[in-house]
Design a protein around this nucleic acid. Structure first.
Lengths: 418, 418
DNA sequence: TTAGTTTGGGCGTCGTCCCAACAAAGCGTG
DNA sequence: CACGCTTTGTTGGGACGACGCCCAAACTAA
C-alpha cells in the first residue's frame, strides 16, 4: 500500500495540497494509533492545537471522524477522544479467481462490513460472463451499502494473472485462460462506474493487505500466495513493489528445478509445479481420493488434509514436507535478493502452512547466505482466502486517506438534543 | 537513493514546506529535462508563470540556477532559458575499499569537478589509520572546492561491508577485516563536520549511481555486479531496496543449478558458481593460460578475453555464451520477481557483457513469464570502478534537491554593466 | 509602422498554518 | 465551597505562499 501522501510525479504543491495532506495525515494517524485527543494529535504530528482543531472539525464535517468519549486524566481539563468513524465511507475489494468471484467492503477502520462470494468455474465460462457475475456481486454490495447511507470510496479488483496497469488490460491469465482482457473497461461499462475502478494482480493486493502500518516487522514483506498457481508480492518500506510494467511478483514461474515437470506456461521446472496446490494434492493422494475431487470445496479438502496430517498419515506428511521444502527453496532465492523482515504465507499455504513450516524454515536456513536467514521470519497469514479482497478494499480506502476532501461535506444536523 | 521530497514519516506540512517542495521540484525539473524558459517550466509543472518567476528568482539568489541564452522561437517574445548552475554547490562521494580510498565531487548538473584516489592496503592498516587517510583526501577535496567558492552539500561514504545505518556502525566488513567500526562518528570527529556525513554500503551506492533522474527506464533497475562473487542491487521507483537488515542484493547464492558445483559458501549450485568470473575463466582457458593468472591485472585479462572473442575463438565464445546463459537464467528468476525496466551489468559483466548479451537475452526471453521479457532491457554500465563514489556524491546532492533553502542566499552583486 | 504573440514580473486576494490569548472543565487544597 | 492550578479546545491576528489578472517588454510578420 502506498502510505505516502506522495507529492507524486510532477505538479507543484499549492496551498490546498497542504490542507489535503494534513487532513490525510491526521486521519491516518487516528487509524494507525487509535483514538486520541486533539491535543495529543497536535503534539504527535508536530502541529499546533489550533490547526488540529480546524482539521478535525473538517474531518467531522466530512463524516470521517467523530468525537468519542471524554477521557479524564489526573489533572487538567478532560479531553474528548477523536476516533475514526466507520459509518460513512467504505472501500470495496473484489477478486476473480478460477473457482470463485468475491467481494468485500471495509469501513475506514478496516472492519468488514459486507462480504459476498459466488462459486463458479471460470474456465468453463468466457471472460464476459465471469465479469458479469462479478458485476452482479458488486452491485448487490453497493446497493446494500447505499441503503445504509454509506458512500463508496472505490473498487479494486484482484485478478489471477499479469495485469498491465498502464494499458488497463489483463495480458496473461493462464489460470483463468484469459488473454488481453480489458477487465477494468468491461467492469466500468457493466457497472456504470460512479466510483473509481482499479484492477491489479491479486498477489499484489494480498501482499498489500499484510502491511500493518506502524509495525516495523510488517514493512518489508515477502508474501507468498499459494493456490493452483503461485504468486505473491514484495513490500519494501511499506510500499508495494510493482515493477516497471506491473509484472512484479510472478514468483510461480521462477525455474527452480531445471528439467522438471512441464508447467502450464510451457516451461519446465517452474516453482509452482512443485509448490502449487496441484503438486501437493497429487503427491498426497491418489486420483480417486476425495481431496483430489475438484467438485469438493477447497476449504474442505484442505481441512481433510490437515486432519490426515494431524493423524500423522505418512503419505500426507511426506507430501507436506516435500512441497514445504520446495516452498523453502524458492523462498530462499527471494530472501537472498530481498532480505524481507517477514515472509507471510497466504492462500492455501496459510491453511496447511503449520505443517509445512519446519521444511520451509529448514530450506530457508540452508539457502540464505546471511546469518540466521538474514533475520527473516516465516508467518502464516490470518487473513485466509480473503487476503486479496481485503487488500483490494484497503487499496480503495487508501484514496480517502490520500485525499479526505474527496468525501463530500455533509450538512451537519444543526438541531438535535442539547 | 530516495528521490522524493517525501513529507517524511510524520510531521504535518506547513506553508514553507510548500515553498521548499516547489523549489526542489523546479530545480529537479531543470536537472532532469534540461534548460528551459520560465514559461515552459510553469506549463510543465502546472503552476502559474508568476509563481515560477518568484521560485526561479529565489533559486538564482541561492546560486543554484542562472539565466542562460535567449531562445528565439518563431513568434512572440524570446524566452531566456534557465539552467542549473554547477558553480555554487557540490556533493562529495567517497569510497573505502581493500586497496584504495577515493573521493569524487559532483556539481549540481552531475559533472565531475574533483576526483582523488589513494592506493593503500586496508588490511595491513587499522581502521583509524585508513579513515585518517580518507579524511585527508576529503580535506584536500574540500579546500580545493572552497578556494573556488563552492559550498559542500554533504559527504556520503561507501564502504565494503554491511553498514547498520540506524546505529551508524559498520557491523560486518570481512573484506576490510573491520567489525563494529563507527565509521561515521570517526569521520565526523576527524573532519570537524561542517557538513552532513552519511555512510552506506558501497554496493548500494554503486546501484544507486545507475539511476538516471528523469529517465523512466532508469528508475526500476536490477544491477548485477559480477566479480569472483556475484552481487548487486535493486532499485524500485528510484529508491534503493535495502532489505530489513541491509542484506538485500545477495544474488550470488541463489541456487539455480541444484546438485551443481560446490560453492565457497558450502552450498551446491549457487548462481555465482556458474556466472562468476571464476566460472568464465575456467571454462575459457586452461589452468596455465595467462588469463588464469591472478597476478595479471584483471583489466588486462578481460581485454585479452575480449580480443579472443573478437577473433571468434571458439572456446572463448563458447564460454561467454555458456556463462552468459547462466547469467540470463538467474536474471530471469529475478526479473519474474521484480520486473525491472532495465538490468544493468556492472563489474566484469560490463567489460565482456557485449559478448554475453545474446545469451543473456535468450535465457531472459525463455525464463520470464511476461511477454517480451516484461519489457526488461539489458544494458552495460558505463561507470566502471567509480560507480560507488559517483553514487555517494549523487546521494549527497540529493539533499539540495530535497530542500534548496539549505543553500544560503547570496547577496546578489547589485552593480554591474546594464 | 502596426498588429499579433509570447514572456516575465507586479499587485491584490484567498487559503493555510502559526502564535498568542482566552474560555472551559476538571482536580486538589484549605 | 471558593480559589488556584493544569490541561484542553477555540478564537482572532499575522505571516507566507500560490493564484489570477494585468501590463510592459521584446520580437515576428505583414
Amino acid at each position: 500500500m502506498s502510505t505516502m501522501p506522495q507529492s507524486a510525479t510532477d505538479h507543484g504543491l499549492a496551498n490546498f495540497d497542504v490542507r489535503r495532506s494534513n487532513l490525510g495525515l491526521a486521519l491516518r494517524h487516528l487509524r494507525d494509533h487509535g483514538p486520541r485527543s486533539r491535543a495529543a494529535l497536535a503534539a504527535e504530528l508536530g502541529m499546533t492545537r489550533s490547526t488540529i482543531s480546524t482539521l478535525v472539525s473538517e474531518l467531522i464535517e466530512r463524516g470521517l471522524v467523530t468525537d468519542g468519549q471524554p477521557v479524564h486524566s489526573t489533572v487538567g481539563r478532560p479531553s474528548t477522544a477523536v476516533e475514526v468513524d466507520g459509518r460513512t465511507v467504505c472501500g470495496i475489494g473484489a477478486e476473480i479467481n478460477v473457482n470463485h468471484v468475491s467481494t468485500m467492503a471495509l469501513d475506514l477502520r478496516g472492519e468488514v462490513v459486507e462480504e459476498r462470494k459466488l462459486a463458479l468455474d471460470a474456465r468453463s465460462l468466457d471472460a464476459e460472463r465471469v465479469l458479469a457475475h462479478l458485476a452482479d456481486l458488486v452491485r448487490e454490495t453497493v446497493s446494500s451499502l447505499e441503503v445504509r447511507g454509506v458512500s463508496i470510496a472505490g473498487l479494486t479488483v484482484g485478478v489471477a494473472g499479469l495485469y498491465d496497469q498502464t494499458r488497463d488490460v489483463l495480458t496473461h491469465g493462464p489460470n483463468l485462460g484469459w488473454y488481453d482482457v480489458p477487465v477494468g473497461a468491461i467492469l466500468r461499462r457493466d457497472l456504470g462506474a460512479t466510483f473509481r475502478i482499479v484492477v491489479d494482480n491479486e498477489g499484489n493486493l494480498a501482499a498489500a493487505a499484510e502491511v500493518t502500518p506502524g509495525d516495523p516487522g510488517r514493512q518489508d514483506i515477502l508474501v507468498l500466495h499459494g493456490e493452483v498457481g503461485v504468486g505473491g508480492g514484495i513490500v519494501s518500506g511499506g510500499r508495494l513493489l510493482r515493477g516497471s510494467h506491473g509484472y512484479a511478483g510472478e514468483f510461480g514461474h521462477m525455474i527452480v528445478k531445471p528439467g522438471g515437470l512441464r508447467c502450464g506456461c510451457g516451461r519446465q521446472g517452474c516453482w509452482e509445479t512443485v509448490s502449487g496446490l496441484r503438486a501437493l494434492l497429487e503427491m498426497a493422494a491418489d486420483p480417486d481420493d476425495p481431496i483430489r475431487n475438484p467438485a469438493m470445496a477447497l476449504d474442505d479438502r484442505l481441512a481433510e488434509l490437515n486432519r490426515r496430517a494431524d493423524l500423522r498419515d505418512t503419505r500426507t506428511l511426506r507430501a507436506l514436507d516435500d512441497v514445504g521444502g520446495w516452498v523453502g527453496v524458492g523462498a530462499a532465492v527471494l530472501t537472498n535478493a530481498l532480505n524481507p523482515a517477514t515472509i507471510v504465507l497466504t492462500g492455501y499455504y496459510a491453511a496447511v502452512g503449520h505443517h509445512m513450516r519446519p521444511a520451509i524454515e529448514r530450506e530457508l536456513r540452508a539457502g540464505v547466505l546471511a546469518p540466521d536467514s538474514g533475520g527473516t521470519r516465516v508467518e502464516l497469514s490470518t487473513l485466509g482466502f480473503s487476503a486479496a479482497v481485503r487488500g483490494g478494499a484497503t487499496a480503495s480506502l487508501e484514496t480517502v486517506f490520500a485525499d479526505p476532501t474527496q468525501v463530500a461535506r455533509r450538512t451537519v444536523p444543526v438541531g438535535g438534543v442539547p
